[in-house]
Design a protein around this nucleic acid. Structure first.
Lengths: 235, 235
DNA sequence: CAGTCCAGCCTGTCTAGACTGGTACGGCGA
DNA sequence: TCGCCGTACCAGTCTAGACAGGCTGGACTG
């Protein structure tokens, strides 16, 4: 009640979150009445916690039946520039990576044009398998100017690339890009542990830094039926 | 409690949504106590409505001060709401449609909940194959309240549904939704002239009108390798 | 005039009930 | 065996209060 203790509905919310994390989709959770008894709390308080998780899509509630763990869908707010790491933290999942490629090589014409580099310039290339709570979610190819090569010294398996860039004074600020659906090839399938010809959602972004200069060219291949983009549109 | 009426907290939510739509960011809204008097309900009921809008980011509540209209979440240029017709015009293609279904039928629970209609309400359902320069691009399912049934009298093969809605005084203003990649089923493949198991990009949107009230629930299944979403992201 | 204090209003949190409509299931009768 | 029905349980909705803690503004004091 006082500010020294967390609200009870928050305690119940935590309890439910950890229950959800340890159960399978479709598994039943405690009923409202059971939670009331468990936390010695009135039903409105239990509902406040349960309703919030239901709104978030973590659980679903069926009148006359009970409360259940929902199918896990990873959501992503489109319209706000976030790194994979930030995105996962927002959803309560731990982001990690398996480093597949980290190299300095000559840029392709396309990369040089996109990043506005001089002809025949070298680029920094990082390819990572992105994991959420250890589960493969996407393959990410990042191309940076060679001036950002210092990020190769960072821990790119546990750490965030965007945070590493910020330590170099480069702040990813704005992005434009495209989204398109495609089929998984043999390489995609193997890395992402999915079937060949499964649906992928491919996002290509060109990110600019705080000065509006091209900073990063990224292609991310998301598992189509695991990753849901959340969109907000207005006139 | 009279049965077969919309919940009171939903009525209050509607009231607040239309208030928000007509005010500027930072403008104060009614206090909880005022809303209690206005709707002759208890405070828990008012809070249920207000808290939902606060969670959505439409309003913010400051203890000791009051409830206010929030800054719009999405920048004007980010995630513009456009109809298929507008989208195609932007790409220099002519949009047309083949009308597959146009009917008035009972809404599903999901549709009724999304559009905030009374239980067992009827809905207007339009399914069209969307073409760009005569080439199949997407299958679109639109569900509207039965009060918008007059759009069925319009030319839905050559004309724009959103323009028809505007002639009825309903202006599609804001949308939230999700995008996900999936594979084409036999029906999709036949209509879109693609192979079974080709990649699709599925967008689900819930569109609200100028008063912030739910207007349209849409699912659009785009041909994955023909349709590219352009995105703009910012910090 | 400046500073303090308090009363009144605001949202946050919570209680202990109530009624509704929906679902699941066991038992009873045909 | 099959169908019907009653009962128990479930979440949805709602009431009429309560206290805590933050904020504002006016009154009162020095």
């Amino acid at each position: 009640m006082s500010r020294h203790t967390i609200p009870r509905h928050q305690a119940i919310e935590r309890h439910l979150r950890s229950r959800v994390a340890g159960l399978q989709p479709g598994d039943p959770l405690e009923s409202d009445a059971e939670l009331c008894a468990l936390f010695r709390v009135s039903r409105m308080t239990v509902r406040q916690a349960a309703q919030r998780l239901a709104d978030e899509g973590l659980i679903y509630r069926v009148p006359g039946v009970g409360t259940f763990v929902a199918e896990p869908k990873v959501h992503r707010d489109v319209g706000r520039l976030r790194s994979f790491t930030e995105e996962m933290a927002l959803r309560g999942a731990a982001a990690s990576s398996r480093l597949l490629v980290s190299e300095i090589r000559s840029g392709t014409h396309e990369e040089i044009a996109a990043l506005q580099l001089p002809p025949r310039a070298k680029v920094t290339h990082v390819r990572r398998l992105r994991l959420a709570d250890g589960k493969p979610m996407a393959i990410e190819d990042v191309v940076l100017p060679v001036s950002c090569a210092a990020v190769l010294n960072e821990d790119l398996e546990q750490g965030s690339l965007h945070e590493a860039l910020q330590r170099l004074g480069e702040i990813p600020t704005r992005a434009t890009g495209t989204q398109v659906a495609a089929l998984a090839g043999p390489d995609d399938a193997k890395l992402l542990s999915i079937k060949v010809n499964a649906a992928l959602l491919i996002e290509r972004r060109l990110i600019t830094n705080q000065n509006g200069l091209p900073l990063e060219k990224t292609e991310t291949r998301y598992v189509g039926d695991e990753f849901v983009f959340h969109i907000v549109l207005s006139l």
